[in-house]
């Protein structure tokens, strides 16, 4: 579906949107905001490099990665830093596979195993596999508008529709213009704060504003934080479909 919209068309739509902001603003419902947010964070294909910096009780460590993605379901991450060089994580629809260079067998993560943390960070495998289609899992409610770090934002509360979602309640700050999620607070149904994600820096890819560096803090652990940084980003590169297959994992 994305293919059908040419770059020009996209630009036109955006321009129109920008012109119409004042009138649209009040017309936008919570669901529309979420829809827009999801749409703008999904690409046909991407290629990026970056790093994950994890701080826990034992200190700080950094891992570098390369990452490819396709649509909202497929992604492949390959680690390039020394400690985990060659390790890959492949996500295809509903499944997550781990590849280790010295193992002759792929390890499939499923069910509760997905709740384990990735590389000891505050990000779990499950956080990675989370469906991009927010409205399938959450009911959104527009709370108010607020300025966050100088950016006008919508503040929305998302309430989980089912128990199969990790975070029963999310509170997100969505940029009114770029629909970037500046901040997210993840809580239990009773409102106890579990994790906080905050975007520290952004970059532009075309017209879209994307997070360059974000910080994820596990609020239940003291001195625990993960810094995720995107060093380079390429939108819609040509990717061989076979990248996201199991055969390809074991090159």
């Amino acid at each position: 579906m994305y293919k059908k919209i040419s770059r020009l068309q996209k630009l036109m739509i955006l321009t129109i949107l920008l012109f119409c902001i004042p009138s649209i603003l009040f017309a936008l419902s919570a669901d529309e905001i979420i829809g827009e947010m999801d749409r703008l964070s999904t690409f046909e294909t991407t290629y990026s490099t970056g790093s994950i910096q994890t701080t826990d009780r034992f200190g700080t460590k950094t891992s570098q990665f390369k990452s490819w993605s396709q649509g909202e379901k497929d992604s492949l991450i390959e680690f390039t830093s020394k400690a985990e060089r060659g390790q890959k994580i492949l996500r295809t629809e509903g499944s997550l596979y781990l590849f280790y260079p010295d193992a002759e067998q792929l390890i499939r993560m499923q069910g509760a195993a997905l709740r384990q943390s990735m590389l000891g960070s505050d990000i779990s495998y499950e956080d990675m596999t989370e469906e991009k289609n927010t409205l399938d899992n959450y009911t959104a409610k527009l709370e108010r508008e607020e300025t966050f770090k100088g950016n006008a934002c919508f503040v929305l509360t998302l309430t989980a529709k089912s128990r199969s979602v990790a975070y029963p309640v999310q509170k997100i700050w969505v940029d009114k213009q770029s629909f970037l999620v500046w901040k997210a607070e993840y809580s239990t149904a009773q409102g106890r704060l579990l994790k906080v994600m905050e975007v520290l820096e952004t970059f532009k890819s075309g017209e879209r504003v994307l997070p360059k560096q974000s910080k994820i803090e596990d609020k239940m652990k003291k001195n625990s934080a993960t810094l995720m940084t995107i060093d380079s980003f390429e939108a819609n590169p040509h990717l061989d479909r076979s990248i996201f297959t199991l055969e390809n994992l074991t090159w």
Binding site: A112, R115, E126, A160, S162, R163, S164, V165, A166, Y167, P168, Y186, T188, A189, Q190, R192, L194, M220
Partner: peptide
């Protein structure tokens, strides 16, 4: 103390 856990289905609860 606080017990942080995942409920039936996978949601967080404390």
């Amino acid at each position: 103390v606080t017990l942080l856990t995942r409920g039936n289905g996978g949601f967080f609860e404390a």
